[in-house]
Nucleic acid binder design. Sequence first.
DNA 1: GTGGTCTAGACCACC
DNA 2: GTGGTCTAGACCACG
Lengths: 127, 127, 127, 127
Amino acid sequence: MKKDKKFQIVLDTFSGVPFYKQIIEQIKYGIANKKLTSGFQLPTVRQLAVDLTINSNTVSKAYKELEILGYIETQQGTGTFIGNKKIVISEIERQEKIKSLVREIVNKANLYGITIDEIKKALEEVE
Amino acid sequence: MKKDKKFQIVLDTFSGVPFYKQIIEQIKYGIANKKLTSGFQLPTVRQLAVDLTINSNTVSKAYKELEILGYIETQQGTGTFIGNKKIVISEIERQEKIKSLVREIVNKANLYGITIDEIKKALEEVE
Amino acid sequence: MKKDKKFQIVLDTFSGVPFYKQIIEQIKYGIANKKLTSGFQLPTVRQLAVDLTINSNTVSKAYKELEILGYIETQQGTGTFIGNKKIVISEIERQEKIKSLVREIVNKANLYGITIDEIKKALEEVE
Amino acid sequence: MKKDKKFQIVLDTFSGVPFYKQIIEQIKYGIANKKLTSGFQLPTVRQLAVDLTINSNTVSKAYKELEILGYIETQQGTGTFIGNKKIVISEIERQEKIKSLVREIVNKANLYGITIDEIKKALEEVE
DNA sequence: GTGGTCTAGACCACC
DNA sequence: GTGGTCTAGACCACG
């Protein structure tokens, strides 16, 4: 896995999770990971819509919710910026995330008749 | 991973995938995996609804779609049964599934600041 | 019988045939008769529900089944449209329909003590 | 159409009207038409079920409802008989029936792309 | 008991 | 505005 300096949003079309929620979550985690720091300018609603090839209303909805939550600030005519609000993810939460992700992997693998070994092997190749 | 003889449907409430689609997919994979064979009686609409703690209409909707697609047969007053239609999953499709599952894992790990090594380690412990 | 340019769905409340099946059949015949052609926008789920004074879920169910069968296509947020799939009714099928319709008429007439002559006379007056 | 001396129940599987309702209606009309007169013994529940190849519960349900309505009487161990209650169908009701039947015919013909002439021609041939 | 149909109404995703 | 999902609950047909 190569180091990702630049912040980028990636949508998973098949997960079933609504795009606007994916955007919200990824920006929140970007803040938590310090990839997005106070004052950073987010892409414009229209630009991000084009980049992700989704409707601009969807981006708008995500930004609006993030603003309500206080994570970003919109300045009319200038753009949208990361705010001061901090997000801290505790080690316990991280461990929880790992557990739930693994549980999910095992369930899906099971469902599709995929073995854990196959998953692990495929993961080796990613690196 | 221990061997799972009995067929069981598991819903992921947080995935965002509609319940009825999860049911459809799992039954289809059950047929593909030969865990569900022709003539096998599925749980009743109401029983499955209770088991999954969802509304019976949701189960009904899933069964209905599977019936239209020809995978199951319903007999009013008797129950719902697996039909004759076969589902074959090619090795290519399996490999595709593995790829997409791994892609999903990497994306999520990335998002949450989890390393692949942590995932692999956690997967070891499952076995 | 006057020419019917506009497509319209009519429900028979007393026939005992489920509403959603009547809708499905009429749309299928509309496609077969070329009254509904590829790309045509069907009434919205809610509008048709209002027009037929039935619940929107019932319309939704009909549209859903037609979509699974490939006759119509739905676009979230936009509407529901006739697809490309063709339906051909052979002359043999038409003759079968006539036969079964006549059989039905005779049965009912018989049952209610109505003579075929009365039916024919009443049919003359329709024209 | 040949004269029908004997009373006989005919089920229409495709009408969607439940069997038990068809049975009830036909017996009621039999009484109205004087084809079934007071004291006439109806077939047993089991016999009629066999004749119509339906479940005996269905026949039972029809007879029970007719008994509640007072049209037939059940004598334990002997059989089921037509009661004294008369049913009179007024000429107005008959004319209404004709009208509604014709309306139904026209609707269905319309739907299936059948002309009234074809119906009339087919009706000629029945005689 | 089984599944099937329908309603009323809530909430969501997307344009 | 569009369609989609889900619930709660009623009633029916069939075995």
